[in-house]
Design a protein around this nucleic acid. Structure first.
Length: 789
RNA sequence: GGGCGAAUGGCGGAAUUGGUAGACGCGUUGGACUCAAAAUCCAAUGGUAGCAAUACCAUGAGGGUUCGAUUCCCUCUUCGCCCACCA
């Protein structure tokens, strides 16, 4: 007898898949397509972790499920390789990020193959490959041409450790998302993408997406649309202050105004008496870290010395400066209505400002309707080396000029010292030869030596279009091929457990932009999004190197469990969208299940061979009769009809569960099936069905079984006629409590009176019905009778 | 402070257009096989009482609707996530 040897089986099939290029998608086909992808990983030096395996396995199950159903499936793979970890490693060790990236992607590829994933390896992409980032730069230039990539000088989040600015989305609780250090505000000229241009559409389309509600809500919160009005307040010195408010109807209660410390018109409001105090306040406010602002919400502020006229009441109201008003939201100035707004009231009470009850006026009486958003434009400059160079150069006057498209890519120069220079610029500033570029200056009409931009693009820019690159990953003529796009896109399934807001918002933004430019025939890039939960360590805590509680998936495989057990276990661990805790002992349970599948198949094949040999020794026969696993053979076998029911039940359960992404209960159904086959004996049909249903989860073992059984992997279908049985169990309740069950012919369900009579004939029921029956309730669908006494 | 979600045996989790609560797995206990162990196989396994049939209790707590509630409604507790001085 052959033991289940996962390592041997998996090696065999992985070699075969590799040699056959088994998972290559058909380019463009008449067949219906199915395009699936995980959120491509950042290939760290540590290799795949169990979270990757959970994510990739969900994609793999759906991919294989649809492949077995005969669809033309595309499941490519890629690496998000630009970013700080590789660069910081380069600074520390002097190893080029290019080399580190090569090592890490090679390792990721090897490990993904070791897990048996259905990946079209001919479509691998890598964001730091010049062939790829050439087109990232092309995308930038399209946005630039339309004025949606622009430069602006303003206060930005700056991480002093990583020496770079950060997008709003990359500041978490006042700290850098990468290194965790507190961020500061720094006034800098930076590049932005004008995502706010699409704010309304990004918000309005959310409801139409087949995405988890949680993610949709997070995106809505992030965009944060407020509908209100802008109102001009005349200042006594002849200027005006425009405020944004969602409650223009409360204007009569506006008893003072407040501007942010960074408010651009602040200086003009100051008087000689107030100037020193206000400037001192401004300085303190700018130095305050985000953390400090969050911890101390006591209102602070100072009077500017100026007054404005409330256009509704015509009264003079004082203008204050306070840091509870944000420069970056609305106009950076507010009308304060302490009678209506808690923050204004708190401020008024703190500084003894008047609070007057207000009667409401018509919303449009004093202002013009205006909508603002919480979302800001996307800051894309990074003062780092290991990123996609921004294809811009500056002339002598400092004006930016785009690098012509035919000169792309602007490749990263190879350098020796990756440390950013101390002036707040990336290490690229030190690549003196690379910095110089001769370009035609359209302003002067002459060729001119210009200086390249030394900022690189936020990594999120590189991942904002890779889903379209997958359609034609090696296209040298264009970022993506319109014909391939038309066939494959949009993405049918996108699966991940991170990037709920930033990445998923950016991809949607670029999609709408390129749709407007005529490059994409759709406005939403991702039809269905699945968001899987984390896997925590056996101690219930988050896995981390420092805590020493990391489970390495490759260790699990190499300990002898194999990839099939690892994959199936991670699906069985719980609902895919919930966080889960790794339980080493439960891994063994899944291994036992696969072992039982193997044993059933192996015993069946052996007994089939043996039954053709008439000269079996009686000892061999005796040995066999002691074996606990019965094997049903031949069409006339008694177990056959019985198995048809559970076989078809299992097909239905597994198929519908996969459609509902309930992978854990699909595995449970397969376990039940195997348990039943152990009891009643397995026919060839049973085993083929089992292998086919098992294949998305444990593809190596299932392939081996199908080979032994001489069968293909076409997804089985169920026949409803096998799902009904001749007899049914009817539940009999008294006052809603289970008191007895009846076994009756299925036909009897149509005869309510007969069921009642049968129930009343039961001694167990009679015990409870001596006082007479008030009412009977029979639910045919639930096969349930309730007697009310 | 606002929003969303969750709470079921010793553990992970099943089951909801309201209809047999605890599928499946882990763990535990007993047994078979073995010189022995591992592996494998079989059986039992929510709690309390009982030899048993069985009875009562039980889905975070308390109310409500209903013939019937893990499922629907109200109040509360705890935990998780998101947003948070956004005018």
């Amino acid at each position: 007898m052959n033991r289940y040897d996962p390592l041997k089986i998996e090696q065999k099939w992985q070699a075969k898949w590799e040699a056959d290029k088994a998972f290559k998608a058909t380019e463009i086909d008449n067949k219906p397509k199915m395009f699936l992808a995980e959120m491509f990983p950042y290939p760290s030096g540590a290799g795949l972790h169990v979270g990757h395996v959970r994510n990739f396995t969900i994609v793999d199950i759906l991919t294989r499920f649809y492949a077995q159903q005969g669809l033309n499936v595309l499941r490519p793979f890629g690496y998000d390789t630009f970013g700080l970890p590789a660069e910081n490693y380069a600074i520390k060790t002097g190893t080029a990020p290019q080399a580190v990236t090569k090592t890490n992607t090679d390792n990721f590829r090897k490990q993904a193959k070791r897990l048996g994933y259905y990946i079209d390896w001919s479509r691998e992409i890598n964001t730091s490959d010049p062939e790829y980032y050439k087109w990232t730069q092309w995308c930038f230039l399209q946005l630039y041409k339309k004025g949606l990539a622009y430069q602006k000088e303003s206060y930005q989040w700056w991480c002093p450790v990583d020496q770079t600015v950060l997008a709003n989305e990359q500041v978490e609780n006042g700290k850098c998302w990468r290194c965790g250090h507190e961020v500061e505000k720094k006034k800098m000229k930076q590049w932005f993408f004008c995502i706010t241009e699409y704010a309304d559409e990004l918000l309005d389309n959310i409801d139409s997406l087949e995405w988890p509600e949680r993610i949709k809500t997070m995106q809505k919160n992030w965009i944060g649309r407020s509908v209100g009005a802008e109102i001009d307040f005349k200042v006594k010195n002849g200027r005006k202050i425009t405020v944004f408010t969602t409650r223009p109807d409360t204007i009569k209660g506006a008893t003072f105004m407040v501007v942010a410390p960074e408010y651009s018109g602040l200086d003009a409001l100051l008087t000689d008496d107030t100037r020193d105090a206000v400037l001192k306040y401004k300085q303190t406010a700018l130095k305050k870290s985000e953390i400090e602002r969050q911890e101390n919400k006591d209102k602070t502020g100072v009077f500017t010395g100026s007054y404005a006229i409330n256009p509704a009441t015509k009264t003079e109201i004082p203008i204050w400066v306070a840091d509870y008003v944000l420069a970056s939201y609305g106009t950076g100035a507010i009308m304060a209505v302490p009678a209506m707004d808690d923050r204004d009231r708190e401020f008024a009470e703190r500084f003894n400002l008047p609070i007057v009850e207000t009667e409401l006026v018509d919303r449009d009486l004093y202002g013009t309707p205006k909508t603002t958003y919480r979302m800001r434009d996307w800051l894309i400059s990074r003062q780092r080396y290991w990123g996609c160079p921004i294809p811009i150069a500056y002339d002598k006057a400092g004006n930016p000029h785009p690098i012509p498209e035919d000169q792309l890519p602007v490749t990263l120069p190879e350098i020796k010292d990756y440390q950013p220079d101390q002036s707040g610029r990336s290490a690229l500033a030190k690549a003196t030869d690379w910095l110089k570029v001769k370009l035609f200056n359209e302003d002067t009409g002459e060729m001119e030596e210009m200086t390249r931009e030394t900022d690189t693009l936020d990594g999120y820019a590189c991942s904002s279009w890779y889903l379209w690159r997958y359609a034609s990953p090696h296209d040298r003529q264009a970022a993506w091929d319109p014909e391939a796009i038309k066939y494959w896109e949009p993405l049918d399934y996108y699966i991940g457990g991170d990037h709920a807001v930033a990445h998923l918002l950016y991809v949607r933004f670029w999609c709408k932009f390129f749709a407007d430019e005529g490059y994409l025939p759709f406005r939403e890039p991702v039809k269905r999004l699945l968001y899987n939960g984390y896997i925590n360590a056996p101690d219930g805590k988050k896995m981390s190197k420092s805590k020493g509680n990391v489970i390495d998936p490759l260790d699990v495989i190499n300990d002898g469990y194999g990839a099939d057990t690892l994959r199936t276990y991670e699906m069985f661990i719980g609902p895919y969208e919930m966080d889960a805790v790794w339980d080493p002992r439960s891994v063994g349970g899944v291994y036992r299940f696969l072992n039982r599948c193997w044993t059933l198949c192996n015993d069946f094949c052996e007994s089939k061979t043996n039954s053709n040999v008439s000269s079996r020794s009686s000892a061999a026969r005796q040995r066999e009769s002691k074996r606990a696993v019965p094997v049903a053979t031949g069409d006339g076998d008694a177990g056959r009809e019985e198995n048809s029911t559970i076989r078809h039940q299992t097909i239905k359960k597994v198929t519908t569960d996969i459609h509902k992404y309930q992978f854990n209960t699909a595995v449970a159904a397969l376990m039940e099936y195997v348990n039943e086959l152990y009891k009643s004996g397995a026919t060839q049909d049973d085993l083929i069905t089992l292998a086919k249903l098992l294949k998305p989860f444990a593809p190596h073992l299932a392939s081996e079984m199908l080979e032994h059984l001489d069968a293909n992997d076409a997804w089985p279908t169920w026949d409803n006629q096998y799902l009904t049985s001749d007899t049914v169990t009817v539940v009999v309740q008294v006052n809603g409590k289970l008191r007895a069950t009846l076994t009756v012919d299925a036909a009897a369900l149509d005869d309510e009176q007969k069921i009642i009579d049968l129930a009343l004939a039961e001694p167990k029921i009679q015990k409870y019905t001596t006082s007479g029956i008030k009412k009977t309730i029979f639910i045919k669908k639930a096969k349930l009778l309730n007697l009310v006494v």
